[in-house]
Every structure is written in structure tokens, then in C-alpha cells.
Simulated assay, not measured.
Amino acid sequence: MERIKNIFRLIHLVVWILFGLLVALQLSSEGDIHWLSTGAGFIATGLYVFYCHFYLLTHTAGPGKRRRYLLGLLAIVLTGPGPFLLLYHKPLDTFGQWRSYYCMHLISTAIFLGLSWLARVTENLVLNTLRKEQLEKQAAEAELTYLKAQINPHFLFNTLNNIHTLVYKQAPAAPAAVLQLASLMRYMIYESNAATVPLTRELDYLQDYVNLQQLRYKSSPVVDLRITGDPAAGYIAPLLFVHLLENAYKHSPARLAAGDLKVRVDLQGNVLTFSVQNPIGNKPATPLDEPGGIGLPNVRKRLALLYPGQHTLTIHPTAATFTATLTVHGVQPPPHATTPHLRHH
């Protein structure tokens, strides 16, 4: 905001310099030997009226200050021609001369008052628009942070219980599970604060999530994850896929066979398609809408904030399966985006 104010100050300075040069050029071209004092008086009147009124508009805005503004305006109008009269080279000996020059410069006073009002209104409009945009951006960021944080807490509790069981049984998988949980939490707490992350890192996080969920099942991996395209070429908003996968687990039958959850990631150019399909079994087909998950409305809301006009989320339920497909456009980084991102260890 301060940068915008400095730009306005620079504009004021440039405009007054140009105005002074034009006045000097005009008066000198007319052959007035006293053009310097005449021009200085005229410019001094303009500066005095313009900035006194500008200051008055700035500090009397709002309810209950109208009387103060009107009194200040009256004082500016009455004293506006004063700088010119003080600097004018000819002595004004009679009251008629004073009145004549005074009335003549009341017109220029009115012009500078109007220009001052226009400048103040323009600056207020620009600054208020920027403040509104900043507030909307802050609100959107706060909402995104809230939505992003809504990972089902039951997953964390269940994972800790599963790791406790592995440690109790001294299972060889226990150390790896602890590292995967640490990696998952590190990503959620620290790395996901970035606006976008490498698609490879998001997929690493998703794989950690899948591996920890697998602790609940005795069969071979229940998730069939297939990736096509080059993930290293894509960047995506963090924690975008996990809610769809979380609900696929939640709304699947308690017992899953190997490969029952089908996850597909396809990157073609700057278009990313993510789909997850889960069996429904005897459960009603109401995924993403029950308590405990983020909910389909919130998923759509976060996508609308992150990728307005650049995404589609389609739901395709059948008697046996439920498929959610998300397509996101513009997942390649801009040419200037060369800042390295945190990597997974």
C-alpha cells in the first residue's frame, strides 16, 4: 500500500513540474518582463489551494465532520488568491485593484479546488480498491488454510494405533511407518504452505498416505496407483487430492481386495487429470457428504478459490462403484518460477 502512495506522490511531483514549465513558457512567450514573479504567484496559489483542500478532504472524511469541512473550505476560498497577491510584482494601491485581482483569482481558486477534489477521489478509489482486494485475498487465504487443514483426524488416530501395534509386535514395518507418518506430517505442516508444489512431491505425500492406510489391511495393496505423463513437469496446489482419496477409503466396504481402489494420475501438457474409483458394496452412494470428511461442497469451494475457471470435478456413481475425476488446467510453472521447492527425504 505504501508503494502505491509513493507512486501517487511521484505523479503529483511530475504534474506540478510540468504545470510550472507550461506556465513559465506561456508567460515568457507573451513578452511579460515580470513573468517570473507572475508565474511564481500563480503556481504558489495553485499549490496552496490544491494541497490545503487535499489535506482537508483527507482529514474530514466520514460522518459528523461536514461542518468542519465547510468551514475549512470557506477559509481556503477566502485566502486562496493571497499567495498571488503577495508575490505579484505591481503594488496594488487602491481597493479597486485589490478587488479586481482578488475576484480574478477566485476563478483559478475554484479550478484548483476541483482538481484537488478529483485527485483525492481518484486516490481514494484506487487505495480502497486495493485494500478490498487485499482483504479478499487474506480472507481467501484464511479459508484455504482452513479447508486444507481439514484432514480427517480419525486417520491420524488410526495410524498411530496401527504403528503402536507394529511396535508392540516388533514388526519390521514399524520404522518405515514412523518415517512415513513423519514425512506426511512435515509436508502438511511446513511444505504445504507454498501456493504450489512439484507434482512429484504431492504424489510422494499421496503415496505415504496410501502406505499408512495399508496398515489397516492384511491383503496385498488395495490401491492400484498408476501415473502417466511426466510428473516432474507439473506443479499443483498442495493437498488437493487427498480428500478425494480419503473419502474413497471411507465409503468403501470394510474389506478390500488388492487393487479395489483405482487411482489414476495423468499429466498431458499443462492439463492434469486425477481420478479415484472405489467399490460401494452395500453402502449408500453418498461419498464426500458424511460427517468426518471435508465434504464435497468444501472440495469444490477450495477448487473454485485455487483454480477459478481452470478445473472440472465430475462425479460418476454406478450400482457398484463411485468415481471422482478432477481435471486441472495450468499445472505447469510459469517461466520465471525457478525457486527450488523442499524435497522429500
Rank of each mutant, 00 (worst) to 15 (best):
H164M: 09
Q213V: 00
I163H: 02
Y235I: 07
G234T: 00
E290C: 14
H164L: 14
L206F: 11
E191K: 06
I227R: 06
Y209G: 14
Q214F: 07
G234M: 02
F274E: 04
L261I: 07
N158T: 09
Y209H: 05
V197E: 07
R264A: 10
Q214D: 01
V263Y: 09
L296N: 02
L225P: 01
G269P: 11
P175L: 02
P231M: 12
N282F: 12
R216Y: 04
V222N: 14
P172F: 05
V271L: 15
K250Q: 15
K262N: 11
K283V: 02
R255E: 15
D208I: 06
A176M: 01
K283Y: 13
D266W: 02
L203R: 03
A194C: 09
D208E: 05
S252Q: 11
P172T: 09
L160T: 07
P238E: 13
L212D: 13
L179M: 14
D266E: 12
V197T: 05
I227D: 06
G292I: 07
A174M: 08
Q213N: 15
L225K: 12
R216N: 00
Y205L: 15
N162R: 04
D204T: 06
V210Q: 14
S183Y: 11
T159L: 03
D260H: 03
G269S: 07
Q170L: 03
I227L: 02
Y249M: 14
M188D: 07
N282W: 03
D230P: 08
L272D: 02
D260R: 05
Y209R: 13
L296I: 08
V271D: 06
L272K: 00
Y209S: 00
G229W: 05
H243L: 12
M185L: 10
L212A: 13
P291L: 08
Y168C: 09
T159R: 01
I163D: 05
K262Y: 07
G293R: 07
Y168P: 04
T286L: 09
A233R: 02
V222A: 10
M188K: 04
A258C: 10
E246R: 02
P172D: 05
I280V: 14
N193I: 08
V276W: 09
K250T: 12
N158I: 03
L179T: 13
H251T: 08
Q277G: 01
Q213Y: 06
A174I: 10
V242R: 07
T196I: 12
G269L: 08
D289H: 15
N158L: 12
L206S: 15
F274M: 06
L296D: 03
Y168S: 15
L212M: 12
R264I: 05
L160W: 00
L203P: 04
R255Q: 11
P175R: 08
Y249A: 11
N247Y: 05
P291Q: 15
T273H: 08
I236P: 01
R216M: 10
L206N: 11
S192D: 13
A254T: 06
Y187M: 03
A171G: 05
A182S: 15
P172S: 01
H251F: 01
V242L: 07
K283I: 09
D230K: 05
N247H: 14
L256N: 03
A257C: 04
R216V: 06
P238W: 07
L179F: 15
A174F: 14
Q180N: 10
P291I: 15
L206R: 03
